[in-house]
Design a protein around this nucleic acid. Structure first.
Lengths: 235, 235
DNA sequence: ACAAAAGTGTTTACACTACACCCATGT
DNA sequence: ACATGGGTGTAGTGTAAACACTTTTGT
């Protein structure tokens, strides 16, 4: 039994993958493999197949096009303008992912010419993908101001100066390091390690790891992670 | 030209309509007009037609089933489990709406047996609609803690005690009225009127209206609208 | 006169900000 | 020895919470 007289529509998923390499926030793009707009830069996209839930479809598309697996993936928004794909009406569900670039460096397949772009230097993308990326950037900034989501972008062991430079990159601001470290440590989410990262300074900075239990338990609590949030542009 | 070898899928929209009648937060439901599950309680839903964008489709569906037009409507989430509709695979985009029940009382059509239910007494709904409602309630609580969204549920003129009882209903809590009124007034969003509402008390409470300009300009700023947000359960 | 809800002010604790110096180490 | 980035403390300010009494008016 089926619903008769109803029009079925193509349903696609597009993944916006943010990565951090210790220096800058970057965006993963591939060269589109099919017409139209073949070889133009594009998000990782594909169609939802009948036997796959949205979650599964999103993970499979990401895996197939980039090799990435087991990363943080969250639904962003449905995009459904009538002519967003010139070939045929397609409703696209945008997802965004957060990864530590170095950790997934080996897993990342270059079969589809996946490349990292600085988020401030994103080329023209196909369809409405630039709009999706802008929305994802805003959502990331919004969410990161309240929840400790940016840890998804860091390696297991990281230093507070690394963390701060991540926040500073995302908000394109400079924060006071004394206040920043006090605020971050006061969340109780970080566990200090005995060893230091000596790559970025002579003195070396202590490594920290995330307290996974507290992270999961407190993820939805409101934290005040950035100074003067009202002065920043989010949405 | 079309994408060949791809499966097209039914795309539906389901609208979660919250309303406030001055006393309680309520949810609008209708009795489903078609098989399967005919006559069971359901959200307002329909299929996305090929010539309608998602925004348009959501508004049309809401209008057709309830008569409501021009209300606050926001995309919530895509639901895409394989068997969420037993008849045929359907991806549903959930939207939620906020209205003042009295203001739309006359506009509300009862053609489809639309009825208001207290949000704490929601019957069993078809498919995954109960899950959608739960998510919408959480999102509303989350968003209302940070942004002045609840004004969408109030009439043009309202009193601070009314506003407080709305917040108290949504968070199932009791707030200190001195702190509440100070906090709300300090947002600068309210304009005091000369007249009073004398229905709910002998002394009467001054009416306020929303400063629309400031409301639109400040909507995305972070406001601290409820006490001790960290102690409340959101998500 | 009394009941019922509106309205208002103060004190206290905590959180955020601004700000400057010492520390450890590699060169 | 010096340059570089890491790490820490304090004072001042502002914001949020706890708390109780007076006002108005309908009955």
């Amino acid at each position: 039994m089926k619903y008769s007289h109803q029009t079925r529509i193509l349903v696609a998923i597009d993944c916006i993958v943010f990565g951090f390499d210790g220096e800058k926030l970057k965006l993963l793009l591939i060269q589109r493999g099919m017409e139209p707009e073949k070889n133009k830069w594009s998000l990782m996209g594909g169609f939802v197949e009948p036997d796959k839930s949205l979650e599964v479809a999103a993970n499979v598309i990401l895996k197939d096009l980039t090799g990435l697996e087991g990363v943080y993936l969250e639904q962003l928004q449905a995009f459904g303008g009538i002519n967003r794909d010139p070939i045929e009406r397609t409703v696209s569900l945008a997802y965004f992912a957060l990864i530590d670039i170095h950790q997934y460096e080996k897993q990342l397949s270059h079969e589809h010419h996946a490349e990292w772009f600085e988020t401030s230097k994103i080329p023209q993308l196909i369809f409405d993908h630039n709009e999706m990326v802008e929305m994802a950037k805003k959502k990331l900034r919004y969410k990161a101001a309240l929840h400790p989501i940016l840890f998804e972008l860091l390696p297991e062991k990281f230093t507070i100066p690394q963390l701060q430079s991540l926040y500073e990159g995302i908000y394109d601001s400079v924060f006071d390091k004394r206040n920043f470290s006090r605020k971050i440590l006061s969340t109780g989410l970080l566990i200090k390690q005995g060893d230091k990262d000596k790559l970025n300074s002579k003195k070396g900075a202590f490594y920290y790891i995330l307290d996974k239990g507290k992270y999961n338990a407190n993820f939805h609590a409101f934290l005040n992670l950035i100074p003067n949030p009202d002065h920043l542009q989010f949405v």
